[in-house]
């Protein structure tokens, strides 16, 4: 290979690399105030907040979901959608929204079409968060499931079940 050909090839690679960078910036622009971790935590906190019983965050549900590799891509796309939609609608990052604004975004995600990113994000993260949260006995205080099914069983099974 002579020097001219080599330079042409290097120059071509450089152009391609440059074009790739521009393409990536167009599709996935860098958002200096997008904090994925914080966005995710606010989302989970809003799904299952603290009241008489602990919220999902204090039971570590946000981290438990992220331990599952199948959720990583969905969480990345879903949180980005939250950030961008919050910016578009309220000109504020998602993490800085008011209670009612946050509520409006979660409602919006729940009503999007079934195969869209926001709806999938809502459905699947809600499903997983609920499953994991209520698997923890601390969440079940005040429900009929405060105790495990065994060893006591339910000797009162013939009577109505008044909630705790």
């Amino acid at each position: 290979m002579n020097r001219r050909v080599l330079l042409q090839r290097l120059s071509g690679l450089g152009l391609l690399a440059g074009a790739g960078w521009l393409f990536k910036q167009a599709l996935f622009p860098h958002y200096p105030d997008f904090d994925q971790q914080a966005t995710w935590r606010v989302w989970i906190d809003h799904l299952i907040p603290e009241d008489e019983t602990p919220g999902a965050l204090s039971l570590g549900i946000d981290a438990k979901i992220l331990e599952k590799p199948e959720y990583l891509d969905l969480v990345e796309k879903g949180t980005l959608w939250l950030y961008k939609t919050a910016k578009d609608r309220f000109d504020t990052p998602y993490t800085a929204l008011s209670e009612s604004e946050t509520e409006s975004l979660i409602a919006m995600a729940s009503k999007e079409s079934g195969d869209s990113i926001p709806n999938s994000f809502f459905l699947y993260t809600r499903l997983e968060a609920m499953k994991l949260y209520y698997a923890d006995p601390r969440s079940r205080v005040g429900t009929v499931w405060e105790q495990n099914p065994q060893p006591a069983g339910h000797p009162d099974f013939q009577q109505p079940c008044h909630h705790a």
Partner: peptide, 12 residues
Amino acid sequence: NYCAGCNFGCPR
């Protein structure tokens, strides 16, 4: 003792 958990395997 009526725990209803037959499908989970009966520990009793």
